[in-house]
Design a protein around this nucleic acid. Structure first.
Lengths: 147, 147
DNA sequence: TCCTATAGTGGGTCCAGACCCACGATTCGC
DNA sequence: GCGAATCGTGGGTCTGGACCCACTATAGGA
């Protein structure tokens, strides 16, 4: 019926779907980075949390959970680990003693830089088939789609 | 420090990562389609299985599992449901009675067309911000990355 | 002051995806 | 023909993600 030479070939009907490619490539990138982070006992949302604190400054746990679209309970657990590792400070807000303010520590900033480098490595590997110009185009399009 | 106007804004450091956008957009597309399929009790690999049978003709269960990068055991379960619904025939290969040959039924082809339409709808929604020309560019780049 | 609402947290549930092992049936190499 | 390999399959496990509830501590309004 077709050229069955390669028995692992993906159905053309799927390859025609941009969303199929999107989810396949995206999942691959995600998995690669997740695996690298797992070696250090970290997950992707740990990286996101550190990045958010670096980019926007200190957050209440509630606020950070909202920003990262995480359940407050789950974020509490993540913050636990990050604080235990010394990447962030968790201080009780004196104005409202229910609140905990999360602040990136210098050590956390250093760690974040390492994680960013890791993410760049994965990105270079995933986008290897593209030229720099093509990567820029891809990035621009994805930004529009994401927005 | 920044414009904190929108407390749900994603950290710029992450938006700069193409792989971050890729996995976020991809997961979104995946979830949307998965949700639609779930209404009919189907999963994404059901769609993939039907598409593979349509594009490449009948397969042994083993071969189909290999092509879809699924565990043979998991594919057996999926084939069960598809056969029960009448979308495919499962016949014992007379030449090797261990093998089961999966063949798309006419009803299955019809169903597949419906699923494809569903996938196109999701794609239109996800890629709404892009023009047709831009979508073509995006598709081409993703094909290169995927290959 | 008392009542209600909110922040954080511990301890769960539920689901999908990926995997894996053991087994019966069958085939194939020798 | 017999032992080794292979196909399908039932019945698991393990992981991550998303979610949810109950509870304590605290704050704030009437």
């Amino acid at each position: 019926m077709f050229d069955m030479a390669d028995p692992t070939e993906t159905p053309p009907a799927l390859l025609e779907l941009t969303t199929y490619l999107l989810s396949r490539v995206g999942k691959d990138a995600r998995n690669r980075l997740a695996e690298l982070l797992a070696a250090d006992g970290l997950r992707l949302h740990h990286h996101a949390a550190l990045a958010a604190l670096a980019d926007f400054g200190p957050h209440t746990q509630r606020d950070l959970a909202t920003r990262l679209r995480l359940d407050p309970s789950d974020l509490a657990k993540a913050a636990d680990q990050l604080a235990a590792a010394g990447w962030l400070d968790r201080t009780r807000d004196p104005a409202d003693r229910r609140r905990l303010t999360l602040t990136l520590t210098p050590a956390g900033a250093t760690r974040l830089a390492e994680l960013d480098a890791l993410a760049r490595d994965v990105q270079d590997a995933v986008l290897a088939p593209l030229t720099a110009a093509e990567r820029a185009v891809l990035h621009g399009l994805l930004l529009r789609v994401h927005g």
